[in-house]
């Protein structure tokens, strides 16, 4: 589905952010990308939709080689790649609906978007997405009037409005409290499951990554140093990714967290979307 081949990025300042990164993401697979600050996580996902221009190497999305595309073709390919940002990156002074509809910009002409005359199916889709992320009551509010968790939900709806084939998620929970972080991660993973959507999620919080994704890639100084399931992340691997540190607390915290979060001791790691949804409803969240 998504294939990175020997992707390298050297910034003009001479900083080598990525050196020879290669991996493949299968359809419907959600990958957590972890690594210390400055390891090149943000650069990596931005090289995929070429918000950052890679220095060498190739990126394939399906059959398309993204790294070869000209400007027009790149724009058309970007429509297929939804992106969710750290600190939400909503256009603050636009309404929630405008933010969600902006996911359709690649599909409509400038004048249509200028006069906000979107096709009816785009509008009904946007309403549907806002309903899905639980923001039906906030359609006409300005984005900066929402709370952090609500804003990130708008960000998710905007990315989904693109009808993407791939989600790139950059630190979705960086400025959210632990509970909201879990809700947002759960929502993203659920949606990916519903649509069979592959995703790459940059994430700082190792425990959170372990809880929600089934494959983890560890990046250190621009190189892949771990690629495997979350339950094999032990002190040795964490040291390889982040460097020497006392990891016992981190790992134990993960266990406690899961124990707290999943009182039913099921063997299955993965929670079905329905059960999650039920629990959220019980908590009055969605």
């Amino acid at each position: 589905m998504l294939r990175l081949d020997n992707l390298t990025k050297t910034y003009r300042t001479g900083d080598r952010a990525l050196s020879g990164v290669s991996f493949t993401v299968e359809p419907g697979q959600v990958v957590g990308l972890i690594g210390p600050s400055g390891a090149g996580k943000s650069t990596l996902i931005r090289c995929i939709n070429r918000l950052v221009e890679p220095s060498s190497g190739q990126v394939f999305l399906g059959e398309t080689e993204l790294t070869r595309l000209g400007r027009g073709a790149l724009r058309r390919s970007r429509r297929r790649i939804g992106m969710i940002f750290q600190e939400y990156a909503l256009v603050e002074r636009l309404t929630v609906m405008e933010n969600v509809l902006s996911g359709r910009l690649g599909y409509v002409s400038f004048w249509r978007s200028f006069f906000r005359k979107y096709p009816t199916d785009a509008v009904s889709k946007a309403y549907g997405l806002l309903d899905r992320v639980g923001l039906t009551d906030h359609v006409d509010k300005r984005a900066d009037a929402l709370s952090g968790g609500q804003r990130q939900r708008v960000g998710i709806a905007r990315a989904l409005a693109q009808d993407p084939d791939l989600l790139l998620v950059d630190e979705p929970t960086a400025s959210l409290d632990p509970k909201t972080s879990r809700q947002i991660m759960r929502l993203i993973v659920e949606i990916c499951d519903e649509h069979g959507l592959p995703a790459i999620i940059n994430i700082h919080d190792v425990a959170l990554a372990q809880q929600f994704v089934r494959r983890i890639i560890g990046l250190k100084a621009g190189e892949v140093v771990y690629d495997g399931p979350p339950d094999q992340l032990d002190a040795e691997v964490l040291t390889r990714i982040y460097g020497e540190e006392d990891w016992s607390a981190t790992i134990r915290a993960v266990d406690e967290d899961e124990a707290l979060d999943e009182p039913t001791t099921s063997d299955e790691e993965y929670l079905s979307p329905e059960s999650v949804l039920d629990r959220e409803r019980m908590a009055g969240l969605s």
């Binding site: 790649i81 940002f85 359709r104």
Partner: peptide, 15 residues
């Protein structure tokens, strides 16, 4: 970040 997010949707320059 706000402009980047709009660019990432595949929007044109004027958009």
């Amino acid at each position: 970040a706000q402009a980047e997010a709009v660019r990432a949707t595949g929007a044109g320059w004027w958009q």
